[in-house]
Design a protein around this nucleic acid. Sequence first.
RNA 1: GAUUCCGUAGCUCAGCCGGUAGAGCAUAACACUUUUAAUGUUGGGGUCCUGGGUUCGAGUCCCAGCGGGAUCACCA
Length: 573
Amino acid sequence: MSIGLSEQEILRREAMVELRKLGINPYPAEAFDVNVTACDIKENYQRDKTSYKNISFAGRIMSRRIMGNASFAEMQDSTGRIQIYINRDDICPGQDKTLYNIVFKKLLDIGDIIGVQGYVFTTKTGEISIHVSKLTVLSKSLKPLPIVKRDDDGHVYDGFTDPEMRHRQRYVDLTVNPGFKQIFINRSKVINTMRGYFDSQGWMEVETPILQPIHGGAAARPFKTHHNTLDMPLFLRIANELYLKRLIVAGFDGVYEFGKMFRNEGMDRTHNPEFTSMEIYVAYKDYIWMMSMVEECLEKIAIVIHGQSTVHVSGHEIDFSGPYEKLSMYESINKYTGIDVSDMNEEALRQTCKNLGIDVDETMGRGKLIDELFSEKVESHLIQPTYITDYPIEMTPLAKKHRNKEGLVERFELFVMGKEIANAYSELNDPVDQRQRFEEQILLANRGDEEAMAMDDDFLRALEYGMPPTSGLGIGIDRLVMLMTNQSTIQEVLFFPQMRPEKKVKVSTLEDFMAIGIPSEWVPVINKMGFHTVKDLKAANPNKVFNDLGGMRKKMKLEIIMPQKEQVMNWFN
RNA sequence: GAUUCCGUAGCUCAGCCGGUAGAGCAUAACACUUUUAAUGUUGGGGUCCUGGGUUCGAGUCCCAGCGGGAUCACCA
C-alpha cells in the first residue's frame, strides 16, 4: 500500500481542478431538487409513463459505458440503481460540446455524485432508463470506490468483502454493498416497533445518566473516567436498572429506555464494548405478566420485518408467536440431563458436574454450579423461544424472592437459538432484603469478585420510601436484531463496531521538506525514493542521495534543474 | 488470553523448488450514437504490512512486531 496519493487519486484531483477552470464548481452550494427515486421509476414507470416525462434525479455514478457520442451509466441513489442514457447532442444542443466530450467523458468518474434531468424511456434491450437532457455536477469523488461487478443473475464478481475494510469504512461498504443497508433499516424497525408498542400501552420513554458515580444494576467491569470540576471518578453505565426503578418510586407506571451500555470486557462476534439495551419497568406487574408482554412484542417485531411470526435463522424456522415454552431452571436441567438437582446440596452438585465432565473448582457456590451445568448441558438445546424461570437466589441480587419456592427468585431469561435474548424479574422492592443482598455482594467483592455489585445507598433510600410491586425487563437490542436479520456477528448489526485504531503512517509535509532547503519540485522525487519523513532522509547517506537524485531525474524523465552537490549536502546539516 | 490462518496494484486475487512482480476489473489514450460483467487496440500504475535474520540472491524460508479473520477461553 503506497503512502502518497495513488495514480488514480492524482488524476481525480486534476479533474477537479479542470472542472473549476471550466467554471464548474465540483462542490456547489445550491440545493438540487429531486422529484423521483430509482425505486419509484422501476416500480411505477411501466404503469404510468406520463408521470416520468420531466424528472430530476440525483445519485452516484456507479459504472460507465462510453460509446463515442452516446453513453450509458448506472446511477445509484438511496433506493437502488438506474441506468441513464446520455447523448452528446442532447446535453450539448449548440456548437459547444464541452459538457459531453470533456466534462462527462474526461472529468467525471465512478463515485461522483451528479444530478440529471430528463425523461424516462425503455431502451431497445428493454432496460428502463433515464434519457438525460441536463447534467449537474454535485460532488466530485477523489477516492476510487472498489468496483463490485454483478451480472444479470446478480452474481457478484469482485466483492468488497474484507471485514476489516467493511467495518472501518462502513460508508464504502454500504455504497458498494447496498444490500447490507437492509440490516440497518430492519434494526431501526425493531426499535421503532418496540417503541410504538410501549407508547401505545401508555409507558414513557425516559433518559437516565450514562455517567454514573456508582456502576450498579449488573455484574460487569466498567469503563472509568474522571470529572474535572467535581474532581471525582465517574463510570460509564453498565446498566440503567437502578435509575429506572427510582422513576417507578417517583410515581410513573411504566418507564423504558433504549440506550448504550458500556462494558470493559472481551470483544468477539457477540460482544462489543458498547452495546444497546432496552430496559422497561412496569408497576403493579410481575414476571408472569412480563412473559406475555414479551411474546406480544416479539411477535409484532417479526411481523413488521418479515410479514409473519416465523423468522428464518441459520437453518431454523424460529416461531415468535406465543406462548413460549416455560421451564424452570431445575426442570430444564432434568429435561436435558435426566438429573434432578433441585434438592442437591453444594457437594452433591459439584460431584454431578464432575460426573458430566464439567470443569468445576472449589470456589464455586451452589448458584454458580447450577449456572455452569445449565450453560453446558441445556443452553444449546433452546432453539425455539423458551423461558427459563426461577433462578437460584445467589446470582440475582435485584430480583424478588420466589413467592413459594425457597432459595429461588422470580426471574426468567428468554433463550432463542441457544442465546439469551431477554432477562426479567419481579423486581425486589423490599428495602431490608435489598440491603442484605447488597451486603452479600460486598462480601463477594471482598473475596475478589470484580463484578460484584456495589452498595447504592441512594437507591436503597428510594426503596425505603416505597416502590410498588414492579416487573422489569432488559433486552439486548443488538442480539435481537441479529436474530431478526439472520446475522451471526454483532459487527454486522452495528454501523461502527469497535476496532483497534488504524496505524497512522508518519509523513512529513511538503513544507517540512522545503524547510531544510529542498526545492518543492524535488520533494515528490525524494518521496518516490522512499523518504517520507525528514528524519528518514537525514539518516541516509548524503552522497548516495545525491547520486540517486540524478538517477531518478533520468528515470522519471523530469525536466527540472539538478541541484548542486553542495546544496544537497546542506539538506543534511 | 490461547491456537490457527491471512496481509502482493484503487478493488478482487495468482505468484511453483528462493532467481527480473502477474491477471481480471478499475484507470489513461484512440475508435465506436441503444450498451448493460459493453467491445477492440495500446499504455501507465507496486514500501509485496513493518523490522531483523539466513542466503551470492527473499514476495517466497526463519524470528519478532503491527493489523485482521476463524475457533476456543473469559463475559449472567
